[in-house]
């Protein structure tokens, strides 16, 4: 049902901290594992042991290099899954109603039983967040682990997305952006979280925390006093030692 809800009760999504992501792909594989075994059709792999293996993944890690005007280039590992856009173009283009945005929490899902695999929603998504499963012929996408976050068969603390639970660096955070006091809202506020391709008006729910400023070597003059020599020669150093030891608690002076 491809009308977008006028508004959703909650806005669940992820915050991804680009200052912390080390590019380990842990979230990629735990996502693959969970979603292969759970929601809908398994994420299939074509030529898994052959040339050009190609499988369905709902989350991928890119690596970018940014060359600032001065200073060395920076490497940034960049995870990307569905951003659960408020203004999701993937939903409105869907001819079957298989794609929809949940009114209760804003999660964008595909009803795999209705999907005809036309691929149009993937065309409409600017971010490459949808993948047509080659074995099943239906559209797959990040479900925000809708089968975990409310799952009463899981302990309370595990009711979070698989990728968030597994991220060793803690670079992924899950929560409700409709609540300004939620941890994710606070993080976005504090660290200046941003949207990807804001100019397209998709209004992503997921936010990215930009990397902190890098390679800012402190001004030498500030540091110089810290390195004021106590001595230039070994003998001078030893007499300094002697005096300094005297001053320590329990020293002889």
């Amino acid at each position: 049902m491809t009308d977008l809800p006028a508004q959703t009760t909650r806005k669940l999504g992820l915050v991804i901290d680009l200052d912390t992501c080390v590019g380990c792909h842990a979230c990629v594989i735990s996502c693959k594992g969970w979603n292969t075994e759970n929601y809908g059709a398994p994420l299939s792999d074509q030529r898994p042991y052959g040339d050009e293996p190609m499988g369905t993944f709902l989350n991928r890690i890119h690596s970018y290099e940014v060359q600032p005007d001065t200073g060395p280039a920076q490497t940034i590992h960049f995870p990307k899954s569905c951003l659960h856009c408020e203004n999701a173009p993937c939903v409105t283009v869907c001819p079957t109603g298989a794609s929809y945005k949940r009114s209760e929490d804003g999660i964008v899902l595909v009803n795999e039983d209705h999907c005809i695999g036309c691929g149009l929603c993937a065309w409409a998504c600017p971010y490459g967040a949808r993948e047509l499963d080659q074995a099943e012929g239906v559209m797959k996408k990040c479900t925000l682990c809708v089968d975990r976050i409310y799952n009463e068969n899981l302990p309370e603390e595990d009711r979070e997305p698989a990728c968030v639970r597994t991220c060793p660096a803690g670079a992924r955070h899950f929560g409700d952006f409709a609540d300004p006091n939620s941890a994710v809202s606070q993080l976005v506020e504090k660290r200046g979280g941003i949207d990807l391709m804001p100019e397209l008006g998709t209004a992503p729910v997921n936010k990215y925390l930009p990397p902190r400023a890098k390679d800012r070597w402190d001004d030498e003059s500030l540091l110089a006093p810290l390195l004021t020599p106590v001595a230039k020669e070994p003998s001078g150093f030893l007499s300094w030692l002697d005096k300094a030891l005297d001053k320590l608690p329990g020293g002889s002076a």
Partner: peptide, 27 residues
């Protein structure tokens, strides 16, 4: 704008997520 990193400098792809083409690249 796609990465939000544009105001830090020139952004370049260093490595794709997977070493073989995926559905997105094919499509």
């Amino acid at each position: 704008t796609a990465t939000g990193l544009g105001d830090r400098g020139t952004v370049r792809s260093l490595a794709p997520p997977h070493t073989s083409p995926n559905y997105l690249m094919r499509e």
